[in-house]
Design a protein around this nucleic acid. Structure first.
Lengths: 237, 237, 237, 237
DNA sequence: AATGAATGAGACTTCATTCAT
DNA sequence: GATGAATGAAGTCTCATTCAT
């Protein structure tokens, strides 16, 4: 009976299509990471996927298509992780710390994906429309850029951040530096390690530590209170 | 007399060659910045230089050749500036500050060159031999990487840096973050500006400020100088 | 009862097929006119018809099939119109005039179809078998080519045509010129208008007028009627 | 001595280049005529010219380029012939007759080139910019379109043309019909011959004869003089 | 040293068509 | 009868590079 058969058939098609798509994206992701996005041709992706050129075009009509598709999945993962981490944090400093921790974690456990983002930034930044960037970074910080200012103000209010920070500037500056460092380390990878004699994770975590030291309230509050002896809170901060 | 004619002729010849070389490099630099290194072909560089393909081969036999040549000039400039700045500084913090200032200055005044370095990192990191990286970073810090550890120790000793910094790690971490941020900002350029509503220089200088805040012992000293001897808790931060 | 259900089902089926066929032909006709037959691919016709490539093959298995099908309908219309017009005419000149009028009318009111014929001539003339041409022109003049000679003789006899016309040649020559002019004007369309500053219909009607002037015995007769019995010389032209 | 060698070397290059160009154009012209412009691919032209695909692109970068180049030579020839013929004619009717004679001559002696023009009209009319048409037709009538009106007026004045012709319309209409007929006959070629039983030249010359009969003053002058007996000239006209 | 010509290699893309469901 | 998937074949075009002058 056609009515009964139609749905399963359609499902089967869709499932097949999805599987093929994944094969292509996986092959592409691997090749991009091994040789660099710019050095990989559609022909290579095609044969690495076990397809013929003309079949490929039924799925992706250009390398850009593939790149954007990969970007989509990478960012979706990232967004989910970030959101979860922020929700469980309490003070603003904790939230910021959680965000940066996520980035350290990704660098350790998903270096290939971070490298992909690094390449993407370097190669596509030029061409892609500004809204894309909003989407991109917006997904790293799913609460939106506006939230950055709020976060700093919140931290100043709750005493976890230095009171002299510029709410409209600081968080942007921090995120940028951290993303820059993370991607650079992912790209240069073990070269950095060879050279600096330090694993990339340690370097990155140290970067985060220094930045958080630069943000946190401890010393400043001491200065503000000025001539009173430091409270216990300050001492332990 | 051949002896007399030879030298001027040779000079003229060398001068001509040097001029041609510059034309090529300038054209390439411009194209690389406009369209991205990977999207520029030798054909384009050739015709932008006003040469013929076959003439090009008398100067550069591949795009890589050109890229490395440009890299050489960019790094030489950078090295000179950095060295000078460091020499005039007194405390370790001053030296670090000077190094980071140089980077901010380059971002403001030589964004194209920073963009070039950003592209270089992203695209050539993969292939180029490790010694090259040593050269690269070695020229930013002409005193050598070993010096980084010394610098931190010096700063702790002269009281300009936090005493709890790890001499083998901190400076590497800081430099990496700053380079990462600088190149990222140069690459994304006015896109970041549109999005964050802040000019890239301000963002970058804020990044530096936060990092220096994270490094310095200043506030503690400030508090100390002003009112009372620092408690032990403050000293250990 | 199967006997009762079969007929309506078959009808429904046939109606559906016919509707699909028309959709395809209409889409093709439009595309052929917009972009030129040779530049239109089956893929384009297929998607303009809202079908899938594989479905198309249930109806037409090549572009040629479609072209011939369209040709069939266009010629059928034309044949009907021509036949009717000729039947109501009295003298040979009137018949010829009627035939040419039809062509002017089509140029004015069905320019797209004339353009189709123009393209067909230019592109398929090379390949198509000679019998097809017979069919083609035979339908414009449903009475057959032989009739052309008869027509001229008839006109000479009834005094409507110049007596010095060659019955085996003239009508062919005239028809050819008129078809050539008509199709050319349809093809070049408003380009001619822009250039010559005259609408295509006016140009075409003027062409017809000149040709008819070249054919008719009228003026001589006019002279005759007005003043004096015609001399023998005038009668024989 | 370089000064002496340079010029001959450059000449040699240019001569070689010109020879290659001609080989390509000749091969293309032949293929276009045999199979139709649209059915010929660059690959075919290339190999018919004895070149490699990549060499071809040093000369012509698309089929269109080739088509336009051929068009250029064809029109140049035509323009030269037409101009010469017109100059030696005396009355307007003679001039028109000369123009049409040229077209008959080309049909007889250069049918392939006329076929090329026919194809060009049918296939490129759609796309090519209007100025091109001006150039095209302008070269057939090198005196410019304005001249058409003048010619008719001149003919009416010198008594060689019917006085009731519309100077702004007639010549355009005539030329269009003649070009249409000529190209149609060239395209259909021997098919027409088979069918009509008449060689194409005869048909075309008959077309011209009828049209000229339609234009010339003879009969009209009879009418104008009205009641005088026809002169001998009129009788034999 | 400069350059015109030639070209192998290969990337990208589209089409028409078949087959299994 | 409709359609999703697959694909061989072919065309278009560009690039890097060599060679002879």
């Amino acid at each position: 009976m056609p009515a009964r058969d139609a749905a399963p058939a359609a499902n089967k098609y869709r499932a097949h299509r999805e599987r093929q798509r994944r094969r292509i994206l996986d092959a592409a992701e691997r090749l991009f990471d091994e040789h660099g996005i710019d050095r990989v041709t559609m022909v290579e992706v095609t044969s690495a996927s076990g397809l013929r050129a003309s079949t490929m075009y039924q799925y992706f009509s250009s390398k850009d298509d593939i790149v954007w598709a990969i970007l989509g999945t990478v960012l979706a993962d990232l967004a989910a992780q970030t959101k979860e981490a922020i929700e469980t944090a309490r003070t603003a400093l904790d939230k910021i710390t959680a965000m940066l921790e996520i980035m350290a974690d990704r660098l350790t456990n998903d270096q290939a994906k971070v490298r992909f983002l690094a390449q993407f930034d370097a190669m596509y930044a030029r061409d892609w429309p500004a809204e894309r960037l909003l989407t991109l970074e917006g997904q790293i910080n799913p609460l939106g850029f506006r939230y950055f200012g709020t976060l700093i103000r919140e931290g100043i209010a709750d005493g976890s951040l230095r009171p002299d920070l510029d709410p409209d500037l600081t968080m942007h500056a921090v995120i940028n530096a951290v993303i820059g460092a993370q991607r650079r380390l992912a790209s240069l990878g073990n070269r950095v390690e060879l050279e600096y004699g330090q694993p990339v994770d340690r370097l990155f975590r140290e970067t985060i530590r220094v930045i958080l030291l630069g943000l946190r309230a401890t010393e400043i509050r001491a200065a503000r209170v000025r001539c009173a002896p430091p409270s216990r809170a300050e001492r332990s901060g």
